[in-house]
Simulated assay, not measured.
Amino acid sequence: MKTLNLLIIFLSELAVIGSVAIWGFTLGTGWALRLLAGIGGPALMIALWSLFGAPDAAHKVHGATRAVFETGWFGAGAVALALAGYAAPALVLAVVMTLSKCLAVTWHQ
Rank of each mutant, 00 (worst) to 15 (best):
A58N: 01
L99K: 05
L27F: 10
L93P: 13
A82L: 11
T71A: 14
I39P: 01
G28K: 10
A57K: 07
G18T: 03
F10I: 00
A47F: 07
F69N: 00
I46Q: 02
L35E: 03
P42S: 10
I39S: 14
A64W: 08
A47L: 15
P89H: 13
A21C: 08
R66H: 03
L51P: 01
Y86F: 13
A82W: 12
A43M: 08
T65K: 06
G18E: 11
P42I: 02
W31Y: 09
W73A: 03
L36V: 09
V79M: 12
S12H: 14
V96A: 10
T98G: 02
M45H: 02
A47P: 04
A58W: 09
G40L: 10
V79N: 09
A64N: 12
L99Q: 05
A78K: 15
V96S: 09
T71D: 13
P89Q: 10
G24T: 08
S19T: 00
L35G: 11
H62Y: 03
I22G: 14
H59P: 00
V61F: 00
M45K: 11
L27C: 05
G85V: 12
A67P: 04
L33C: 00
I8R: 08
H108P: 02
L44M: 11
T65E: 03
A78E: 14
L11Q: 09
L44Q: 05
A84W: 13
S19F: 06
T65V: 02
V96R: 14
A64Q: 13
I17A: 04
F10A: 00
A67R: 11
H59M: 07
K101F: 05
G38N: 07
A84E: 14
L11A: 13
L81W: 09
I9R: 15
L35H: 04
L36E: 04
G77K: 15
T26M: 14
S50K: 08
M1N: 12
A15F: 15
S12W: 14
H59F: 14
G28V: 11
A88Q: 09
V96W: 14
F10D: 01
L11G: 09
R34A: 01
A43D: 06
I46T: 05
L33P: 01
G41W: 00
L6S: 11
A21V: 04
R66M: 01
F69T: 00
T29W: 15
